[in-house]
């Protein structure tokens, strides 16, 4: 549970850890039934229209202005057009 929380950048309370351990175990036990299906030679579907052409020519287009892009940020360096974050400590 702690390893997964760390991967997901979530800090769970002690109560949440207990609750989720039980609930996730129940849900995964239920989801386990997909193991029983024979899926040899069955391709995976990641996208329902996989054959769709999705590329366009590499031409720049209008996007958000810098001020719009920074407009909702909690902390910015607006003149530099940057978002400001706490320093990275200990990697």
């Amino acid at each position: 549970m702690q390893r997964i929380a760390a991967l997901a950048h979530l800090e769970l309370t002690a109560d949440e850890q207990v609750l989720f351990t039980r609930q996730l175990a129940d849900i995964l036990a239920y989801a386990q039934q997909v193991q029983a299906i024979d899926t040899s030679d069955v391709p995976a579907t990641a996208h329902v229209h996989a054959a769709q052409q999705t590329e366009r020519s590499d031409d720049p287009r209008e996007s958000l202005s810098t001020s719009d892009a920074l407009g909702n940020a909690p902390d910015t360096a607006p003149d530099a057009g940057l978002f400001r974050v706490p320093r990275v400590i200990g990697g």
């Binding site: 997909v34 193991q35 299906i37 899926t39 069955v42 391709p43 995976a44 579907t45």
Partner: peptide, 13 residues
């Protein structure tokens, strides 16, 4: 889990 579920999608289709 994930790959298996994506295969189930194909079977459903």
């Amino acid at each position: 889990f994930y790959l298996k579920a994506q295969q189930v999608r194909t079977l459903l289709r």
